[in-house]
């Protein structure tokens, strides 16, 4: 392995094994950790000390933008071209409610989807962990823990041994 390392990938049999190993790795002082699992594993984000995701705020921002856009559009249109239909009000909030509601939801949903992809750095078709020989099972039935090579405590040999000791089915070095 002359090339630069991305990190060490350890394979576990079940979410429980992964959680236990992750806890151990945190306790051993590893900080640059990530896990790869076939479905969301509850509790992992707390052990890994991930910050709370901000998608909800972006969704709220999208909702406000949507409502604002819809209201501004409808008010402006009725101001610019007032249609007097039997003396009914030109600016009825009740009649504007439907389009306002729809655009609130549309903007909010799209903002969240794109924010999720943006924050996750997707689409990105190639990523170092895909080089892992057994990594294809991360989408099937295996749970992987990755210790990044730029972790302060990282040492290829030592980390490999540590993860093997933590109950991994297999461990391997992943090149950058």
């Amino acid at each position: 392995m002359a090339e630069k390392l991305y990190g060490v990938l350890a394979e576990f049999k079940s979410p429980e094994h992964l959680l236990a190993a992750t806890r151990k790795a945190r306790e051993a002082g590893y900080r640059n950790l990530d896990a790869f699992t076939p479905f969301p594993v509850e509790g992992l984000d707390r052990i890994l000390h991930f910050p709370r995701p901000t998608i909800s705020f972006i969704g709220l921002g999208g909702a406000i933008a949507g409502a604002g856009t819809a209201l501004a559009m409808q008010f402006f249109i009725n101001y610019d071209y007032p249609l007097n239909v039997g003396g009914r009000p030109i600016y009825p909030i009740s009649a504007f409610a439907v389009v306002t509601f729809e655009l609130t939801i549309l903007f909010s949903a799209l903002a969240m989807l794109f924010a999720m992809l943006w924050q996750n750095g997707l689409p990105r078709l190639s990523y170092p962990v895909f080089n892992g020989e057994r990594f294809h099972r991360a989408s099937k039935d295996r749970f992987f823990l990755c210790v990044g090579a730029d972790d302060a405590k990282f040492d290829a040999g030592e980390t490999l041994a540590f993860l093997r000791g933590a109950g991994a089915l297999s461990v391997e070095l992943v090149p950058e």
Binding site: D34, A35, F36, T37, P38, F39, P40, V41, L44, D45, L48, F50, P53, I55, S56, G59, I105, S108, A109, M112, L113, A115, M116, L117, Q119, N120, L122, P123, R124, L125, S126, Y127, V129, F130, A138, S139
Partner: peptide, 25 residues
């Protein structure tokens, strides 16, 4: 698949997006 790799970080954001979109739907 956009290069989805099942990262725990990704799942966390994904889950929030999925649930909130459901809440809007």
């Amino acid at each position: 698949a956009l290069g989805w790799r099942g990262s725990a970080r990704h799942w966390q954001r994904w889950q929030q997006t999925y649930r909130l979109t459901a809440g809007l739907a």
